[in-house]
């Protein structure tokens, strides 16, 4: 089984970008750390296959595990994205509350 680490990383980056949409700039740093870690794991995996530490069967099984690890990382990015959305929605509500509060004060003072 051949594996092109750069292709895998590029695909993962594009999946992460798609998952977070407009929040990309906020999650970029974390996503880059995930990619760096992934790169190191894949390099080690390849090295272990070459050295014979991993049989072909185990190597393929570990590549399947990589999908699970990527899922975990996407879930972590998902939390940041949701937290940013919740923060933005709360800020919008606060502005509306403030405006209604001001309108009440205005109506009372008239």
């Amino acid at each position: 089984m051949n594996i092109n680490i750069d292709d895998v990383l590029a695909e993962m980056l594009s999946t992460m970008k798609g998952a977070v949409g407009e929040n990309w700039s906020e999650v970029k740093t974390v996503a880059q750390q995930f990619l760096q870690r992934r790169k190191e794991r894949l390099e080690l995996l390849a090295q272990l296959r070459i050295s014979g530490d991993l049989s072909q069967e185990k190597f393929e099984s570990r590549l399947l595990d990589e999908k699970l690890i990527a899922e975990a990382e996407l879930n972590a990015v998902g939390v940041i994205s949701k937290a940013l959305a919740q923060k933005a929605a709360s800020a919008g509500l606060d502005i509306l509350k403030k405006a209604v509060g001001t309108a009440i004060l205005g109506a009372i003072s008239k």
């Binding site: 995930f34 870690r37 992934r38 794991r41 080690l44 690890i69 975990a72 879930n75 972590a76 940041i80």
Partner: peptide, 13 residues
């Protein structure tokens, strides 16, 4: 390495 990366994801979340 695998578990270190998974715990990192857990902590990020």
């Amino acid at each position: 390495k695998t578990f270190s990366d998974l715990f990192f994801a857990m902590q990020v979340a």
